[in-house]
Design a protein around this nucleic acid. Structure first.
Length: 428
DNA sequence: TCTGGGGTCCTAGGACCC
DNA sequence: TCTGGGGTCCTAGGACCC
């Protein structure tokens, strides 16, 4: 019985390094939207004490003065690199669950009798490194929760191969003993505090509590975690990506927005993007919600959060319907006199694109039945937006800032890396 | 001056049913 | 005057994940 967790090391930072060998030992951080927070750090940057999620302005000066290199996030590039890594895994392992952009769970039960799993892990790791340039770490253990523990253990004792297996009771208990309870998958800040109050500070102590007690005192979720820590598999590999239940497009603004005239086209942009995602999922939605909010960090200023949901009587994935609903939702929640810092749109109540359930009465706002039209627009906009809706802001997220983005090395003809400038010159 | 974005699951409580 | 028991469905909010 074995599962594995493959985790890309400092993923975004590692990606930035792939086509920049000159940055091999340079501390790297990658920033969130608007260059707001640090969302990825290379090992060197971690060693410098740069925390996950810290506001960039707080560490900027010291980081740069020590020779660090900073990037705005380049999700087109990271997404493409991630797909390459996942493809390799799918080529070698029958059961792969892509868990996030930089992590995948592998089901190894069927391989166990033919291979030494540790060697198998080392082999996969070196192939991924060679074929994509992405360094990964692999934890092997009987349950998902324990694979996370195995990874932490590998980090703690600094396993040079970056592949670590825990399978015997002794190995597992040893690893658990060295894991703070807060580092267990499924234990967040709040639960961590509660457990600490109950004198449970490491994962071994948590594993040794009666799961039924945990269920009564905490929740079924934590009970499952406890069972998983004890080696009882509660969570399997989920091969087929489950259909999404909601789609969110939201952004914070680099500069505050105060008037509806500016806000409306921004929300329209979100609506257009959300509708694209929805069609990509082959789903339709019955609910469109819009929210706007001021910044909770400027607490000396008046605060306002608005949230409104519009329902369709017939599900739709036509951008025009979603645009109309978004405008309708925005109007009543907008109040003048506030500095808005963030807005977003949320689509929910999904149903399959193929299924048509009409309302009993004809709705004057009945969704348009013209999926061909949207399909053509999607095709035209596939690589670069060429067709905009009239209510959109075509100046591309004007209130947002993003100044330090690397090239789209692998997805744009215009930004391909150049192997050797001399050769290029010679053939020009 | 400057503080991310996109998800999931579970539970409590209200509204409603017979 | 006396006012049940057992359900379902939905939503908001909390907690967690990366």
């Amino acid at each position: 019985m074995a599962l594995a967790l493959v985790d890309c090391e400092s993923f975004y930072a590692s990606c930035e390094r792939i086509f920049r060998p000159d940055l091999k030992h340079v501390p790297i951080v990658v920033l969130s939207n608007n260059d707001g927070c640090v969302i990825a750090r290379s090992t060197e940057a971690k060693k410098m004490g740069i925390g996950m999620g810290v506001p960039w302005f707080k560490v900027k000066d010291s980081f740069l003065s020590q020779g660090g290199k900073v990037f705005s996030s380049n999700f087109t590039f990271y997404g493409d690199m991630s797909a390459r890594v996942m493809n390799i895994l799918e080529g070698f392992v029958p059961e792969v669950e892509v868990y996030s952009i930089d992590e995948a769970f592998l089901g190894l039960d069927s391989l166990e009798e033919h291979y030494n799993l540790y060697d198998f892990g080392c082999h996969i790791r070196s192939l991924i490194k060679q074929w994509t340039g992405v360094p990964v770490r692999i934890g092997i253990a009987p349950t998902k929760t324990l694979t996370k523990i195995a990874l932490n253990e590998a980090k703690r004792v600094n396993v040079p191969t970056k592949v670590h297996q825990i399978s015997t009771v002794k190995e597992i208990r040893e690893a658990l003993k060295n894991t703070p309870v807060r580092d267990v998958w499924g234990v967040g800040r709040r639960l961590g505090e509660h457990l600490n109050q109950a004198k449970i500070t490491n994962a071994l102590q948590l594993a040794d509590v009666d799961p039924r007690y945990i269920k009564r005192k905490f929740s079924v979720v934590l009970e499952r975690t406890v069972r998983e820590l004890r080696g009882q598999r509660c969570l399997g590999i989920e091969n087929n990506a489950a259909a999404k239940k909601q789609i969110v497009v939201s952004r914070s603004f680099g500069t505050r927005v105060t008037d509806l005239k500016t806000l409306r086209p921004i929300v329209s942009n979100f609506a257009v993007r959300a509708a694209e995602k929805l069609r990509n999922e082959k789903q339709k939605c019955s609910q469109v919600s819009v929210f706007i909010r001021t910044s909770p960090f400027s607490d000396h200023k008046p605060q306002h959060t608005g949230y409104k949901t519009i329902e369709f009587s017939t599900p739709t994935n036509d951008t025009r319907d979603i645009l109309i609903a978004a405008k309708k939702a925005l109007l009543p929640i907008f109040k003048p006199g506030y500095d808005y810092a963030k807005a977003g749109i949320l689509l929910s109540r999904f149903s399959n694109e193929e299924i048509k359930q009409y309302s009993l009465f004809k709705d004057p706002n009945e969704p348009k039945e013209n999926s061909k039209f949207m399909k053509h627009i999607d095709e035209l906009n596939a690589y670069e937006t060429q067709i905009y809706f009239a209510s959109q802001n075509t100046k591309k997220w004007s209130p947002m800032k993003q100044n330090m983005t690397s090239p789209k090395y692998t997805t744009s003809w215009y930004e391909l890396p150049i192997v050797n400038r001399l050769i290029v010159k010679k053939y020009k």
